[in-house]
Design a protein around this nucleic acid. Structure first.
Length: 414
RNA sequence: GGAGAGAUGGCAGAGCGGUUGAAUGCACUGGUCUUGAAAACCAGCAAGGGGGCAACUCCUUCCAGGGUUCGAAUCCCUGUCUCUCCGCCA
């Protein structure tokens, strides 16, 4: 949620900033709702104050054993007015809340303005991509079986077998250990979240169609960012305890509504995938530095795996709903002869903190923290990158040294 | 699934339907004392929102949502969660 004080003081500026990410802010609607809210709130509160006063009077009289007919009549009328007024207020407040929950985060000043992903900016790269192409992961090994996934569940599900399943698991363990080295505390989490958690991080109410919903208040999580960030929901944190650095491996579930026909082949876009997530909760004036280090933590994994990648800074229109600034890490996928997103590291500033009411106190005043998250990394896509980049184009996938302690084998013969 | 108990401020823990936004203790902050610290003593200390240039003032909140009442932390109903016992069980 964006800061309503900003919205009140300079709505045109906010509107302009939001235009850069393709969001049309309806200032008129906001101001009209806000005006009504103020009117009804003042009115309701005045009536409440009067009620409290009259009730005291009534009580005092009752103690004496006397009764005042005109007072009773006054109270009766007041109750009706109050009832009316507070109902209207509740309606307006709920509309106002819906309006505010719909507005995306404001892009950071440093986020480049752009109209599409074409305007994203490459910041740096690592390694030499093999531009001569190559077989794709499904052609390389039959230990990834899409057909069985289809039988068991449906499209966009896969089954990993034998050494590939082990390699996949090794990757996750390696990533968690790297996160620990960088000072992140490991969590094991529920992979189901409720409406409130998903609203806090920004998936709801706007993007419900992207989620798998189980029942009324149960959804499968699309990322560990949701439970990790919500750990501190509704809390006032001791300043001295900040920052929090947390990591978790979870399965992630995405309905991929709206991406029909996109990335239909192979493991690249599945309904279910594994991911190790990094989350930081920090002081507002440290969050942009924290984004740089968090991104470097994610990068270190690609570096140790010696996978060619590039770091791309997303432009305003390509930002996720909750993010003010995002770096995508894109790994080289030989068969596609292109870089594909393998991690997305975002500074959500106070946007999620405001929704989740995560605060800290400084000099007696409470402020919202800043929250950051990033994948380190998406395991399924890392697996693809590994298989394709480490395939000798004949019959052997070699295992990077850093993973051999985990896999206990050095090659996969296919 | 059955039976019972509970949910109050950062934490622990009181609380008769009306001077209770809430006793008390701990923690925390400031001060006195001390070479410094500790102890002791004194003072302060919930959150969110409205109005006002301001001093200030008003409203809401004691798990959530309804209800009873002139008035609810306190009474009633529903839901959620926690704990104890029984049953079942990875």
């Amino acid at each position: 949620m964006i800061d309503t004080n900003l919205l009140k003081s300079d709505p045109k500026k906010i509107a302009k900033q939001l235009i850069s990410r393709n969001y049309q802010l309806d200032i008129q609607q906001y101001e009209s709702l806000e005006k009504k809210r103020k009117k009804h709130q003042t009115e309701t509160e005045e009536l409440q104050a009067r009620r409290n006063l009259l009730s005291k009077e009534y009580g005092a009289l009752k103690k004496e054993g006397t009764e005042d007919k005109t007072l009773n009549k006054k109270i009766e009328i007041l109750k009706k007015d109050l009832d009316n007024c507070s109902k209207k207020l509740a309606d307006i407040q709920s509309s106002l809340k819906d309006f505010l929950l719909d507005i995306p985060n404001i892009p950071a000043d440093s986020t480049p303005i752009g109209k599409s992903e074409e305007d994203n900016i490459k910041i740096r790269d690592f390694g030499k991509p093999n531009i001569s192409g190559g077989k794709d992961h499904l052609d390389i090994t039959s230990l990834i079986n899409i057909d069985v996934g289809n039988i068991l569940a449906g499209s966009r599900f896969a089954v990993l077998i034998g050494k590939i399943a082990k390699l996949h698991r090794a990757l996750i363990c390696f990533m968690l250990d790297k996160a620990a080295e960088h000072g992140y505390e490991e969590y094991y989490l529920p992979m189901i979240a409720n409406t409130q958690s998903l609203t806090s991080t920004g998936q709801l109410p706007k993007f419900s169609e992207d989620l798998f919903q189980l029942t009324d208040d149960y959804y499968l999580i699309p990322t560990a960012e949701v439970p990790l960030t919500n750990i501190y929901r509704d809390q006032i944190i001791q300043l001295s305890d900040l920052p929090f650095k947390m990591t978790a491996h979870t399965t992630c579930f995405r309905s991929e509504a709206g991406s029909y026909g996109k990335d239909t082949r192979g493991l690249i876009r599945q309904h279910q995938f594994e991911k190790v997530e990094l989350v930081q909760i920090c002081h507002p004036n440290k969050s942009f530095d924290a984004l740089e280090t968090l991104t470097s933590h994610a990068e270190s994994i690609l570096q140790e795996l010696n996978l060619p990648y590039q770091v791309v800074e997303l432009c305003s229109s390509d930002l996720g709903f909750s993010s003010a600034k995002t770096y995508d890490l894109e790994a080289w996928i030989p068969s596609q002869e292109t870089f594909r997103e393998i991690s997305s590291c975002s500074n959500c500033t106070d946007f999620q903190a405001r929704r989740a009411k995560i605060r800290f106190k400084e000099d007696g005043i409470s402020h919202f923290v800043h929250t950051l998250n990033g994948s380190a990394l998406a395991a399924g896509r890392t697996l693809i990158a590994l298989i394709e980049n480490y395939f000798d184009q004949k019959n052997t996938i070699s295992i990077p040294n850093v993973l051999q302690d985990y896999t206990k084998f050095k090659t996969i013969e296919v």
